[in-house]
Write a protein that binds this DNA or RNA. Sequence first.
DNA 1: AAGATATATCGGTTTTTCCCGAAATCCCAA
DNA 2: TTGGGATTTCGGGAAAAACCGATATATCTT
Lengths: 100, 100
Amino acid sequence: MDQLEIFKALSNKTRLEILQWLKAPEQHFEQQDHDDFEGQGVCVGQIQAKAGLTQSTVSEYLTILQRAGLLQQTRVGQWTYYKRNEEAFEALGKLIQTDI
Amino acid sequence: MDQLEIFKALSNKTRLEILQWLKAPEQHFEQQDHDDFEGQGVCVGQIQAKAGLTQSTVSEYLTILQRAGLLQQTRVGQWTYYKRNEEAFEALGKLIQTDI
DNA sequence: AAGATATATCGGTTTTTCCCGAAATCCCAA
DNA sequence: TTGGGATTTCGGGAAAAACCGATATATCTT
């Protein structure tokens, strides 16, 4: 758990918004045929459309959040799904109240 | 409580170290005549010496941490003392486990 | 095998952050 | 009231982050 990497990942407005959206995908995204919000999460394209940035930028942001351990990635066919890693947020909350 | 501002303040190695040092000033700094670690905290000069960066840089970093609400500032004579605002860390920990 | 769709990666430009030295401010003591 | 010590503020160069468009890769369909 690299604190600095985590805080850097959280130091961006769009990335914070993405984390918010992924807290309740059914409220923020339209479910499509291939989607399974609960099981897999949301695919890059849907997040990109909502973020209003280019595909390459959003893809990069999701990688940053994933490398920090805050998101989990699943590849299914041509889609890559991302969902929150709730354990990481739990751990981070505790870390702040004890270690930092 | 501006989340983004807080995370930006935490996105720097030296600033994270400063927060660590201020958790236990008596372990990290030498108490001097004018010092009152418990009451007021540690003055800029001592933090600067330990950080190994220039005075102006450290002063700026302390301001960033203070504006984010993570440090409290007290001016006494010619010295400015900084200490942690523990309530802010409590609140941030909770925020991460609920809001983010 | 070829085209379409979804995503990742690669260069590059703009903006922000890092960090410095110099100058300004603020306070104390002689 | 002048000088010295502590700190802040200011201007700027170097490094990192924010984006972008173009290209590459991977998968599905036909």
